[in-house]
Computed example of a mutant assay.
Amino acid sequence: MTIRPLTTIGLDADDTLWQNEQYYRLTERHFAGLLKDYGDADEISARLLEAEKRNLAHYGFGIKGFTLSMIETALQVTDGRAPSSVVSEILSIGRDLLSHPVETLPHVHDALEALSGKYFLVMITKGDLFDQERKLAQSGLGDYFDAVEIVSDKTAVTYRRIFSKVGDGPERAMMVGNSLKSDIVPAIAAGCYGVFVPHELTWILEHVEPPVDAPRFRQIGHLGELPPLIERLA
């Protein structure tokens, strides 16, 4: 009996299956405008990024942590005198993010249709549980996936655990995503294939150098190129 080299495909969600970062960028510009009397947009954005870095260990990834970081930044740049109207508006734009319509990226439906039934498909995403569940439900992609894993962070340990639980181990699995830091480098360290699908907007904290010398590293231009890539490996 021939053993298939690849049986399980993991796919990231935000900015791999649907748009995400562009909404954060728009919100950040709105936020900087609220505080224009206390600093220029670049300075406000830099302070916000520092707050996000500090708060990741406390709040994790997602909109709720981002909203709390905006409030913290507003209090810092105003020396604790942020008007209640500004705090109220920050909460409002945070709620807007949590209810923003889902826009799937090009080629996603066709790629998942081509792979579904041939491979075990698992969505592996980090962020707020309720928000990610909402986006998956609104995306119309849920029926393509055999499993969904919403995690607090993505590490080699995470991928070994998931692909051992839902698949045939990391050596017979592939992780696909737009973040080198979260989706690709740790998946390859776990023993998986890592397929990088660049997005024009990727959060700066997700930037690392691509592991171009790793034998299991691949890069494609969009998800429409994924099925033929997988067939070449099979």
Score class of each variant (00 low, 15 high):
residue 124 I to N: 01
residue 84 S to V: 12
residue 176 V to C: 00
residue 5 P to D: 07
residue 34 L to V: 05
residue 218 R to L: 09
residue 10 G to S: 08
residue 191 G to P: 11
residue 143 D to P: 01
residue 80 G to F: 07
residue 181 K to P: 06
residue 116 S to A: 14
residue 73 T to Q: 01
residue 105 L to G: 02
residue 31 F to C: 02
residue 199 H to Q: 13
residue 116 S to I: 04
residue 12 D to F: 07
residue 214 A to I: 03
residue 198 P to N: 01
residue 216 R to Y: 11
residue 143 D to S: 12
residue 206 E to M: 10
residue 191 G to L: 07
residue 81 R to Y: 08
residue 152 S to Q: 10
residue 227 P to G: 11
residue 87 V to Y: 06
residue 123 M to L: 15
residue 22 Q to R: 15
residue 52 E to C: 05
residue 139 S to P: 03
residue 131 D to K: 03
residue 220 I to G: 06
residue 107 H to G: 02
residue 145 F to Q: 10
residue 127 G to K: 09
residue 149 E to M: 11
residue 72 E to L: 04
residue 73 T to W: 05
residue 118 K to E: 14
residue 221 G to Y: 09
residue 62 G to M: 12
residue 31 F to W: 10
residue 29 R to I: 11
residue 66 F to K: 01
residue 52 E to I: 07
residue 183 D to P: 06
residue 206 E to F: 08
residue 153 D to C: 04
residue 113 E to K: 15
residue 131 D to V: 09
residue 82 A to F: 10
residue 225 E to D: 14
residue 174 M to G: 05
residue 219 Q to C: 13
residue 171 E to I: 12
residue 78 T to Y: 03
residue 152 S to D: 13
residue 202 T to M: 08
residue 120 F to G: 13
residue 195 V to H: 05
residue 160 R to V: 06
residue 173 A to C: 07
residue 60 G to A: 04
residue 60 G to Y: 11
